[in-house]
């Protein structure tokens, strides 16, 4: 407050001198122009994607929480832009999947006798966590079906929804094979992960990536050699979800189990 006042006072004093006014008058626009030159975002120069290292995820749910906060996703456990699933494979081959409240509070422990299947004498073969989100498909069925084009693929490879345009028909929700979309109960329009578009276009990381304590989530661009994602893509064996759907997802998983759908 006081700093503001001081600056204003200083400027007011300065304005009393005509030469100063001229100097300020020139500097202002020049700085603006310079800013426009460096900061302006050019979507065609980017092509975003995400990597998820299943073996690193500890199911803490921090990403789910961060996403809800960052993107103003409704609190209720029916609306998620990202969520975490837990897979428990038993020695008899049975697979159990859960995602209590999207995994936002983490998961109840399974190793002890209080976990029903274990209590019933079942033995666990392996368990793992799988974070999920919109795959920003390169061949997105949600975009194909939207009757008005409210869902679209931007030039930088991010699938977005224009909420001023969406008529709320929910065809896209039906068409997404991954359950990545929901209808925002407040706006009555389709909603889903944007890779934190408001952040990445400023050079920041998506909120979920930012908070992940184990770096299970890796963000970057395809084709850009210097991003961590590209290192991951070079070094690992990659999988995508439901490849037979031919949606060409751009969320790449390492160590993805065949059980994951």
């Amino acid at each position: 407050m006081s700093q503001n006042y001081d600056r204003r006072k200083f400027l007011a004093e300065l304005l009393k001198f005509p030469p100063a006014t001229i100097v300020l008058g020139v500097i202002g626009p020049v700085r603006l122009l310079a800013a426009a030159g460096t900061d302006e975002y050019e979507p065609t120069e980017h092509y975003y994607a995400m990597g998820i290292r299943v073996e690193e995820c500890i199911g803490c749910g921090k990403c789910v929480k961060a996403c809800k906060l960052e993107n103003d996703v409704p609190d209720e456990p029916y609306y998620f832009r990202t969520w975490v699933e837990r897979y428990i494979v038993y020695t008899d081959g049975e697979v159990q999947v859960d995602s209590p409240e999207g995994g936002i509070h983490g998961f109840p422990p399974v190793a002890d006798e209080s976990f029903p299947p274990v209590a019933a004498g079942k033995e666990i073969l392996r368990t793992f966590f799988v974070p999920k989100l919109c795959n920003h498909c390169d061949n997105p069925p949600c975009v194909q079906v939207c009757p008005v084009g409210a869902t679209f693929k931007s030039q930088d490879g991010v699938v977005l929804v224009d909420e001023d345009y969406c008529i709320g028909c929910r065809y896209c929700i039906q068409a997404c094979p991954y359950g990545a979309r929901f209808l925002d109960p407040r706006t009555k329009t389709a909603n889903k992960c944007t890779f934190c578009y408001h952040r990445i276009t400023k050079g920041l990381l998506p909120a979920c990536v930012e908070v992940c304590p184990t770096q299970a989530r890796v963000f970057g661009e395809i084709g850009d050699r210097s991003t961590p994602l590209n290192r991951m893509m070079r070094m690992s064996h990659l999988e995508v979800l439901k490849p037979h759907m031919n949606t060409e997802p751009k969320v790449y998983y390492t160590a993805l189990d065949g059980e994951v759908r």
């Binding site: 609306y79 998620f80 159990q96 995602s99 409240e101 999207g102 991954y178 359950g179 979309r181």
Partner: peptide
Amino acid sequence: FIYPNEVE
């Protein structure tokens, strides 16, 4: 198990 968004 259903995806969390599928409750609705």
